[in-house]
Design a protein around this nucleic acid. Structure first.
Lengths: 147, 147
DNA sequence: CAGGATCCCGCTAGATACTG
DNA sequence: CAGTATCTAGCGGGATCCTG
């Protein structure tokens, strides 16, 4: 009996760990902000644009229209932008406001929660700006050693 | 002439923006720590384990062997673990030490840089633990409204 | 023990076209 | 203007087998 033992126990352990990870709040948040566009949308709404080439990023948080976001995040497809905004709205990080004008007007704005997350992301950004050079140096040094 | 204008200009803008993103340090760091296992390895090395089910995470940073890491991060494949450790070593965030014992012994340890990054990730973790409940509530409220 | 080499699958980002 | 719907290719990542 029991044609399976080793492999199956490992599979079980993995499943358990996966379940554990799924429940871990840090993990969930990480999955959230690591979504390619989340941080950028946050930055856009939080500081008036993720400093596109040739602008500074010192403005204040403000609401933005869908099309305005689309312009600032030049590389995003509408699909991804919509999807990202939806998920942020779902999480209560942004509010979506529909104004029934002639052509419909929709604006997005950070909530208090979204704003506080924006600040955390700002911490990450600051670390990046302070240490990324060093990381990049290490990287090329490593590559040079291995040819 | 010029059979292409609208679509082509958009493509160019996208290329520019992509190039801009590739050069943005915050973006690079985000790509880095959002790699599924990076944060977990960091947590493991930084605090003696990413608190697997049934342990506390209050220990101090220390070096760990490959196999020890593999055990703690139960869900990881060797491929991903190796790949993650390599990239962290490349970036100067961990040091890899090979000891020529009978069966080879390899240990990994955070560098000062890695440790400082670990702290930043800790900030994120703290935010998650403080606000994730709220996010989750918002999420189910949203889902309930839409059925 | 630590990790390289391969094969292969699922998912998801992105392009395109259509709509209220 | 602000989306939705559909299709597809590419690749991240896991499983498996093999080695110094």
């Amino acid at each position: 009996m029991a044609t399976t033992t080793a492999a199956q126990r490992r599979a079980q352990a993995k499943a358990d760990y996966d379940a554990f990870l799924a429940a871990c709040p840090s993990r969930q948040l990480l999955d959230r902000i690591s979504d390619k566009w989340v941080a950028l949308v946050l930055a856009a709404l939080g500081s008036g644009g993720p400093h596109p080439p040739g602008s500074d990023c010192a403005e204040a948080p403000r609401a933005m229209r869908y099309s305005e976001l689309a312009r600032r995040l030049a590389g995003v497809s509408q699909k991804m932008l919509t999807q990202t905004l939806r998920s942020l709205e779902r999480d209560g990080l942004v509010v979506r406001t529909v104004t029934a004008t002639v052509p419909v007007t929709v604006t997005y704005e950070l909530t208090g929660l979204g704003l506080s997350l924006h600040r955390v992301v700002g911490e990450v950004k600051r670390w990046a700006e302070a240490h990324m050079d060093e990381v990049l140096d290490n990287r090329s040094a490593y590559d040079a050693r291995a040819e």
